[in-house]
Simulated assay, not measured.
Amino acid sequence: MLGRTQLDELAHGAAAAEWLNQKAIGGQIEEVLVIADPKTLGEMRQHYHTELRSKLAGEIDKTLTGLPIDKIEAAIDAA
């Protein structure tokens, strides 16, 4: 059973995907790279609209929070 914190994280992932969907459908996104921890990314994928999927440049299933910018840039370059 999922705890409250885990449920909140999944809900945040779903909300982020819905926000991205709106931006993609509205033509405000040309290309997007989604970076999220594996569990959140899995939740987000369940909510992707086909328009958002068509604009995905890629996904990184890693937690990069708190890392120095050079490490984040290296992760993006490797994707």
Rank of each mutant, 00 (worst) to 15 (best):
R45P: 00
G66T: 11
P68H: 08
G58R: 00
E73S: 14
K39M: 08
S54F: 07
P38C: 09
T65W: 15
K39E: 05
I35S: 04
A79V: 11
M44L: 05
G42C: 06
E31Q: 13
L20N: 06
G42A: 01
E30I: 00
A14R: 13
T50Y: 06
A15D: 10
R4C: 03
D61V: 07
M1D: 12
Q22K: 15
Q46V: 06
I60S: 02
I29M: 01
Q46D: 00
T5M: 10
A79E: 11
V32E: 10
A78Y: 02
E59Y: 06
D37N: 14
E9R: 12
G58L: 03
E43D: 02
Q22F: 08
L52I: 09
A75M: 11
I29S: 01
L64S: 09
I60Y: 05
E59W: 02
E59D: 07
I60P: 04
T50L: 03
M1R: 09
Q22P: 02
L20R: 05
N21K: 00
L10S: 07
E31P: 01
H47F: 02
E43Q: 12
L64T: 10
A79I: 06
L10N: 11
K55A: 09
D70S: 14
Q22T: 15
D8F: 14
T40F: 00
T5L: 14
M44N: 01
T40H: 01
I76W: 08
L2C: 01
K39C: 07
L2E: 14
L56H: 02
E73G: 04
R53K: 15
A14E: 15
I29K: 01
E73T: 14
Q22Y: 12
A57N: 06
A11P: 03
L7V: 11
D77E: 10
W19D: 14
H12R: 11
M1V: 07
T50C: 00
E31T: 13
M1T: 09
I35T: 01
I35H: 03
A16Q: 14
G27F: 06
E51Q: 13
L7D: 12
G27S: 03
I60G: 04
A36D: 00
H47G: 00
G27L: 03
M44D: 00
K39A: 10
Y48F: 09
H47D: 03
H49F: 10
I35M: 04
G13H: 01
D61Q: 10
G13M: 04
D70C: 10
A74L: 07
E43M: 08
K39I: 12
G26Q: 09
P68V: 11
G66L: 11
I76Q: 07
M44A: 09
A15T: 12
H49N: 12
G42T: 02
Q46C: 00
E73A: 15
T5R: 15
L10Y: 06
P38E: 08
H12I: 06
D70Q: 15
G13L: 05
T50Q: 03
G3M: 08
E43R: 11
K62F: 02
V32A: 08
I60K: 04
A14S: 12
R45I: 10
D70L: 14
T63A: 15
V32N: 04
G66H: 04
G27Q: 01
